[in-house]
Amino acid sequence: MYKSWAVFVGILIAVMVTCNGFLANYVGDYISLIIIHIVGLATLIPILLFKRAKLPRLRGIPIYLFGAGALGVFMVFSSNICFNFLGVSLTLSLILLGQSITSCIIDHYGLFGMEIKRFQKEKLFGFLLVFTGIIAMLIY
C-alpha cells in the first residue's frame, strides 16, 4: 500500500516538473519562481491550520538550517530550464544520478554530522549501469 504511494509521489514529481517548466515558459524564469513559492505557501498554510500546528520559534536555530529554502530556489530554477532542453525523463534521471553520487560522498566522509559508511567498490558497477543508461538516453 505504502509502496504504491511512493510510485504515486514519483508520478506527481514528473507532473510538477512539467507544470513548473510550462509556467516558466509563460512568465519567464524569475517570475515563475515567485508564483511557485506563493502557491506552495498558499497550500501549506491551510494544512498547518488544519493540523493546528504551532508557529515555530526561530530563536537559537543555527542560520544554516534556513539555507534549504534558498537551495530549493536553485533546484526549481534549474529543473525549469532543463525541462525545456532535456525533457522530463532525462532531467529526472540526471538529478537522480547527482543524488546517489552525493549521498555516497556524504556517507563516505561522514559530512554534515552523518554516520561514516565507507564506499563499497562493488557499487561502481551499479553507477556504471546508471551512467550507461543516461548516455543511452542522451544519444538516442
Partner: peptide, 14 residues
Amino acid sequence: AFFSGFMTIVSMII
C-alpha cells in the same frame, strides 16, 4: 541537472 541532485540531498539533510 546533476548539480541540483547534489543540492537535493544537502537540502534533505538540512
